[in-house]
Design a protein around this nucleic acid. Structure first.
Length: 387
DNA sequence: GGGAGACCTAGTAA
DNA sequence: ATTACTAGGTCTC
């Protein structure tokens, strides 16, 4: 078992003690944006504005914020959270890079920026929030700070030499605790798709939510509620480039609306089930198969040993975990086989281990890893491992 | 039960 | 310049 008590304790302390210790010198970086803000078809917004002028885009006079000012330190250090290995690695498509080592996103109703400070720690800054205290709680929750990354990594390192080596280069790759609805809809968009287009699709849906502000050239919105999502037609989604996933969104939103307890509550309840039950429940939604279900389970439902098995993970697994299957083709049936192998090797937090191994396979990371980590990838020609 | 095909689309490789 | 294939899969025969 894992003892993260001290860690939680220190966090609690952090929360309780009003930082009277004069605020960090804070490397403030107003996010001047070299980025151009993504564009969405504007027509949809106007269409729906007329239908339901409610809380959609009631853009209070454009709050254009800069994350200047103070970065409040989380006091957890880089080993607990390194932003570039946590945010742009496929867990969420809602956060944007708004500066050097700086990412901005929305948690519930709160618009927040995070920045890796010069001392390695992470600082946060709320742009738009009505209650600083609840925003902070939401942030800690979202960052999954109740779990000590370094503690669980210690166990992985002991049992796996390769993990140990990779970990020294890829410190701070944390698993987030996202909102289940947001996570579900995002990964519905992800099937058989690439990050660029997924991001575009997620941006489109996000823009239906309440506008919160602009940071670094990006507009940020609360994630739209189920009823708001239900107002979009399949045709509109297709026109927005969703392809066949349009009907997944429509179908899933309808299914959620029809839940007796309400879709939100139904989703929230999945956090209390065991992994298999949660995955089965998710898979009852159109467009949710084993891979997507595992992503949602791991990234939003506290199912820390869920393993999203895709082609990459299949490669990893057949190379290092179940070499007897190397060379064979990946089929959905083998999903559970792979997942089992990961859990067997890494235990309760296998999903967290998988996350690091997955990140190590990304082209962006391969580039900065010593070449010996890449050798085995080409094929199993020279699987020269420790023998 | 499980193995092929089809499905949207943009980007890259032949 | 076309064609084929891939990319964080799922659904349907």
């Amino acid at each position: 078992m894992l003892q993260s008590n001290q860690f939680v304790a220190s966090l609690t302390k952090l929360r309780i003690m009003k930082r009277k210790t004069s605020s960090q010198p804070a490397s403030s970086t107003p996010p001047s944006s070299p980025h151009q803000s993504p564009h969405f078809p504007v027509k949809l917004n106007s269409i729906f504005d007329s239908k339901k002028p409610k809380n959609i885009l009631k853009n209070s006079p454009a709050i254009t914020t800069k994350a200047s000012g103070e970065w409040v330190p989380l006091s957890i250090g880089k080993s607990e959270l390194y932003l570039p290995l946590t945010f742009p690695t496929g867990q969420t498509f809602r956060w944007k890079e708004t500066g050097p080592l700086q990412y901005t996103g929305v948690i519930g109703p709160h618009l927040v920026s995070l920045k890796q400070l010069e001392n390695g720690d992470v600082g946060y800054h709320f742009h738009h929030t009505e209650c600083e205290e609840s925003a902070r709680l939401a942030l800690f929750d979202f960052l999954n700070l109740g779990i000590s990354l370094s503690e669980i990594w210690e166990e992985f390192k002991v049992s796996d030499l390769r993990f140990c080596e990779l970990a020294s280069y890829l410190e701070g790759a944390r698993v987030l605790r996202q909102d289940p609805l947001e996570c579900l809809i995002q990964f519905l968009c992800s099937s058989n798709n690439n990050i660029g287009r997924i991001t575009k699709m997620v941006n489109f849906l996000s823009s239906l939510g309440k506008y919160l502000g602009n940071v670094g050239g990006y507009d940020f919105h609360e994630f739209p509620e189920i009823n708001r999502l239900a107002m979009v037609s399949e045709t509109e989604l297709r026109e927005a480039g969703f392809g066949y996933r349009a009907k997944y969104i429509i179908g899933t939103v309808e299914a959620l609306q029809s839940k007796p307890s309400g879709g939100l509550q139904w989703l929230a309840a999945l956090r209390k089930l065991n992994l298999e039950e949660a995955v089965d429940a998710l898979a009852s939604l159109p467009g949710v198969g084993p891979k997507v279900a595992a992503c949602i389970a791991l990234f939003s439902l506290d199912q820390h040993h869920a393993i999203p098995v895709d082609t990459h993970v299949w490669q990893i697994a057949t190379q290092y975990l179940i070499p007897e299957l190397s060379g064979t083709r990946f089929t959905p049936k083998l999903c559970s086989r792979v997942a089992d192998a990961f859990v067997c090797k890494y235990g309760k937090y296998a999903g967290w281990a998988q996350t690091l191994l997955f990140i190590a396979e990304l082209p962006s990371q391969k580039a900065i890893l010593p070449s010996r980590f890449c050798d085995a990838e080409k094929g199993n020609v020279a699987t020269a491992r420790q023998e």
